[in-house]
């Protein structure tokens, strides 16, 4: 009966291509963090990173209106949470996206790119690949 007591360190959920899914994204992230006693800052960061990626996919990545557009996987490692964000939208590598100038003044400041900038600030070991019609981004948030 030992196998029944194995601790599940992984969670996976699918999102439809509409912003209304943000509520579920937030709830799933909170549940994962609660189950693993991960604390408020981790929950905030995972929620933020996933919202930024999901919103980009829906607004700019061709996922709007798409069924089962996004797959999110969260896994607890020894010293980090491994996040995989996959979407079926148009090919887009966020790691090659232009970096916004965050030292710009109000007049010079562009409004784009801030979301990806936050993802890159918070996460480590980001890797992107395009395979079988999916954009797959894997990354880690240290504990």
């Amino acid at each position: 009966m030992w196998h029944n007591q194995a601790i599940l360190t992984e969670t996976e959920f699918v999102l439809q291509g509409r912003l209304g899914e943000l509520e579920r994204l937030t709830a799933e992230t909170a549940k994962f963090c609660r189950e693993h006693s991960l604390g408020d800052e981790m929950e905030f960061d995972l929620n933020l990173v996933l919202e930024e990626l999901f919103t980009n996919s829906v607004r700019h990545g061709g996922c709007a209106g798409m069924e089962n557009a996004v797959l999110v996987r969260l896994q607890l490692l020894d010293h980090a949470v491994l996040v995989e964000f996959a979407d079926r939208g148009t090919p887009f590598d966020p790691l090659t996206a232009p970096v916004p100038n965050i030292e710009a003044t109000l007049e010079e400041r562009g409004v784009g790119g801030l979301g990806v900038h936050l993802v890159r600030q918070i996460m480590r070991d980001l890797e992107y690949r395009r395979a079988d019609g999916w954009n797959r981004l894997t990354m880690q948030r240290p504990c």
């Binding site: 930024e52 919103t55 109000l106 400041r109 801030l114 979301g115």
Partner: peptide, 11 residues
Amino acid sequence: YISSAGLRAVI
């Protein structure tokens, strides 16, 4: 909580 969308609103 605030994301880049919220920051943009403030900007």
